[in-house]
């Protein structure tokens, strides 16, 4: 077993053990903390497709995170109030079932990512960063000015949405739902990374000219990666809304986009478990430093500075060494 694989297993085990230990100690709050780690990790796994594999620094992934959140909020509010979400071509009353919400969150995120990507990917570098940011801000202000779903105040989910056969109101069960989805997304990431598509995507990050010269147009590959990336981040958004039983425009804010990038850099860009390591660290810092001082983000900034200056590969890079490509 390679060193990286051992570290990955350790991280997966650690994340799973937090809520179990919390349950044993009767400290239910820590289950919420671990759930938050898993959800942020999932969102960052999504971003890692675009940023880690494709080198596409999207500064607008909060858009998809928030869209996923709003899908959960809007679906459940219509299901709760029994008001139709739309009545043509058929009457649709939303849903309070997670599988339906997840599917919708992923589909809608992907559908919105498609035109955003198609336009943004005409540019590169700083322009790409700025255009993705601009799109996300448009959606942010749209949410703020849309009173039907709470506008600036956000939208509450009265009862956490359900999953067939289990009681999602139990914190540990909801954690396990999120955890399993995270593992599934990681498995997908590993498959895609090692596939033909992943080879083309990573080659495009390393050298776009080379990719085109062998006859593979970078644009379509990147657009597909951006869309997959958005769908997974959207799924994570739906879960976060269910965790907090609340969704607000802050999920769509540029700070959120920045946090997702920070998570990946902390953990290790392009590494399978980079987002997991990053999310665990981030939530831990938020909790520990946040308990010590209101200005915990100042110290997070210092840590990030350290990582960027001295440990480019993030936590996984420090522990497992440089990435190897076959």
């Amino acid at each position: 077993m390679s060193r990286e694989r051992a570290i990955n297993l350790l991280l997966a085990g650690l994340l799973l053990s937090v809520p179990l230990a919390a349950l044993a100690l009767g400290e239910l709050f820590y289950i919420t903390l671990a759930t938050r780690m898993a959800i942020l990790a999932l969102a960052a796994v999504g971003l890692n497709f675009a940023l880690g594999l494709g080198g596409l620094v999207s500064f607008g992934h909060a858009a998809f995170f928030g869209i996923g959140g709003y899908v959960a909020g809007i679906f459940s509010s219509h299901a709760f109030n029994q008001t139709p979400l739309f009545s043509w071509p058929f009457e649709f009353f939303g849903s309070d079932q997670m599988p339906a919400i997840w599917l919708a969150a992923m589909l809608i995120s992907a559908l919105i990512a498609l035109p955003i990507g198609a336009i943004s990917l005409r540019t590169a570098g700083v322009y790409f960063i700025m255009i993705t940011l601009a799109f996300a801000q448009m959606i942010y202000y749209f949410a703020i000015s849309w009173p039907a779903y709470g506008g600036e105040d956000g939208l509450s989910i009265v009862v956490r949405n359900g999953f067939p056969g289990v009681n999602t109101a139990v914190p540990l069960i909801f954690f396990l739902v999120c955890y399993v989805l995270l593992l599934a997304a990681l498995a997908l990431f590993a498959l895609v990374r090692d596939s033909r598509f992943g080879a083309a995507l990573q080659a495009g990050r390393q050298n776009e000219t080379r990719l085109a010269a062998v006859g593979i147009a970078p644009f379509r590959i990147r657009l597909a990666a951006f869309t997959i990336s958005a769908a997974i981040t959207g799924l994570a958004g739906a879960l976060l809304a269910d965790l907090n039983r609340f969704v607000s425009p802050s999920m769509l804010s540029w700070q959120m986009s920045g946090e997702l990038i920070v998570l990946i850099i902390l953990g290790g860009t392009g590494r399978l478990f980079g987002p997991v390591a990053g999310a665990m660290l981030f939530v831990l810092f938020e909790f520990v430093l946040g308990g010590l001082t209101e200005r915990w983000q100042f110290f997070l900034g210092l840590i990030l500075l350290g990582v960027v200056l001295f440990a480019r590969g993030g936590l996984i890079g420090v522990l497992a060494g440089k990435a190897r490509h076959g």
């Binding site: 080879a199 080659a203 080379r210 597909a224 076959g326």
Partner: peptide
């Protein structure tokens, strides 16, 4: 002009992959 992180073999494989057709294979 090469993909610097990829091995020599993987650089050539990229061309073989392109010649065989679609790069939209994910698994």
């Amino acid at each position: 002009s090469l993909a610097p992180e990829f091995s020599a073999l993987r650089n050539v494989m990229l061309a073989v992959q392109s010649r065989q057709g679609s790069s939209f294979r994910f698994f």
